[in-house]
Design a protein around this nucleic acid. Structure first.
Lengths: 330, 330
DNA sequence: TAATCTTGCGTAAACGTTTACGCAATATAT
DNA sequence: ATATATTGCGTAAACGTTTACGCAAGATTA
């Protein structure tokens, strides 16, 4: 039961070889005959030898784990946005035998909590870090990594960053939605935004090719409930509304639910498009059209970049193309 | 820029103290005066000293990272079931300053991939592991952990496990659904199951208090599409059906969508209940009733157990109570 | 055949911590 | 005042790997 693990010294002893030879059998560096390597590998599975990873990391001054840091916007439920990115990360990391270490931190978090994160970066526990922008903490962690020369990649937009980021173009994405509404001849647009999504708003205006005052604009939180509330505002101020862009998908779902409860037909009366294309959007009835940020692809890209970065190669910032996914709601 | 990190020796040297004293300043063990500790801590933030985690782990023969292993059922998209559990894990782990290492492995995975996981367990990279049951790999990893005396917790049901598990009672959960249908006087029930959910089926029968041959039963995959297909079968074989329990939520959503396309009213004509209560169920229209497994609570419980286990305390298997969450679909 | 190059392996010194042990110096008890 | 207990800190030996270096033995070359 409580087997203490066999160490390289004991293992080498049993085989009558040196620890150096054992080490060489498992690693590609160093000279060793094919025969002894095979012998050692066989014996290893037989005796259950497996190198201690801490000793290895310490000796090599290196590790194969990648840290993933992201702000927790809503502490009540999982974040689909993040989950989708993480899905992409894992997908790619598996293929290169790296391990993911996940580090959520509250959006508004104490200095202390942030320090715990900083220590994870500074203590060498990760060979590189991927940081999701979107809170003050993100910035702090970015600076920590940068000043400690730990390879990093930022997902999203952070002030003062030029390289090593993978970004999405919200403005362009929103313009796709505007474009589409224009093409299907909807002419009474509304935009329901989050706190500070001015890029989306601007893109929407550009796509529609109208002036700002022809659009009804309102701001709200990022949730389902907020979307439902926003519907009331919209319908009151602009009863003739026939197309709506929402800053994320839950808002759009809330809007649609409230609208349907008012016997408004989607998309016949009002065409609705959301943002992010989170997974539930395809389950929603009617299927929710959405501006896809290709989040899992962003995750994969981030992995590519961090690998390069860890290799010392430079990493210009990548821009991931948005995509308008049309379903029944528009 | 490329600052090499300062080591304890260098740091201690600058302060004119020994490495032992520095170490004692950061750890609670060992005797040290309050004054020197404070002095050292101050100097540390000033000079940016942070202990190397690999050296620490090696010396301590111990680590504060917890490994999370789970089978990937669908390699195309994130798994809500898992995400919800992981949410609970993180939530709890943060409070005890432990770090999560995530290790997805394909449901049907190669010996090689599995070995990578086994090595993570055997190499001491984790102080304890939490394994989600549900594939052959889960069993292998469980055995690995057990035989190597690495603290483990199993989420779900695994053959031959008595302790260290946190389980949910699918049978009881399904009986709640049956009960409910009986109370609202629905008498033509159907059950749409996954490959091997006999516990759910049995529970449903028990709750309904009918014999098995009074229920229409069909099996299908675990997705949205499968649920839509199942609807066709059900409506053909049992046109008078008025209540349905589905083995998971996506199935239920698919079923409802297909039914609505046939102008069948939910819940008036057919009341539908899903299983797992994944997050999208509350966005769905109509809101999907579901048997909640309280997944995030399961995650939290798993953390409690692994902590105890790592502490050497015994861990009897925990059973998490199911809960019937009623929304508009039933 | 002798000179050189290559291969396979062992010895031992890192890597950066923690901690048992010991010894002064100080505090407490008699 | 002396005897004893406690406190604060330094010395050095782990922890389990990797790898530079060196040295025989075998392979290659001239």
């Amino acid at each position: 039961m409580s087997q203490r693990k066999i160490t390289i010294k004991e293992f080498a002893g049993k085989l009558g070889v040196s620890t150096a030879t054992v080490s060489r059998a498992f690693n590609t560096r160093g000279r060793i005959s094919a025969k002894t390597r095979q012998y050692i590998l066989n014996k290893a599975t037989e005796l259950g030898y497996c190198a201690n990873v801490h000793a290895k990391n310490l000796s090599r001054q290196d590790t194969s784990t990648i840290g993933f840091f992201y702000p927790v916007i809503n502490s009540e439920e999982p974040d689909y946005f993040i989950d989708e990115i993480m899905f992409g990360l894992n997908n790619r990391l598996q293929k290169v035998a790296k391990t993911l270490q996940v580090n959520p931190f509250p959006e508004f978090c104490s200095e202390e909590t942030l320090n715990l994160c900083r220590q994870k970066i500074l203590s060498g526990s990760t060979g590189g870090v991927i940081i999701v922008a979107g809170s003050k903490g993100s910035k702090v962690l970015f600076e920590t990594a940068k000043s400690a020369a730990v390879p990093y990649v930022i997902i999203g937009h952070l002030l003062g960053i030029e390289n090593n980021a993978v970004q999405f173009d919200n403005e362009h994405g929103a313009s796709l939605a505007g474009n589409y509404f224009r093409k299907i001849n909807r002419s009474h647009p509304a935009y329901i935004g989050g706190h500070l999504d001015s890029a989306k708003k601007q893109g929407f205006i550009n796509g529609l090719k109208v002036s700002e005052d022809q659009i009804f604009i309102t701001h709200c939180g990022y949730g389902f409930r907020a979307g439902a509330d926003a519907f009331q505002k919209v319908i009151k101020s602009m009863p003739e509304v026939d197309c709506v862009l929402c800053a994320n998908d839950p808002i759009a779902m809330g809007f649609i639910s409230a609208a349907q409860a008012h016997n408004i037909k989607i998309p016949e009366d009002i065409a609705v498009i959301g943002f992010d294309d989170i997974r539930p959007s395809r389950f929603f009835v009617p299927g929710l059209s959405s501006v896809s940020l290709r989040l899992s692809m962003i995750g994969m890209q981030a992995v590519e970049m961090i690998l390069k970065n860890m290799n010392g190669e430079p990493c210009p910032t990548q821009h991931i193309e948005c995509d308008l996914v049309l379903r029944e709601s528009s």
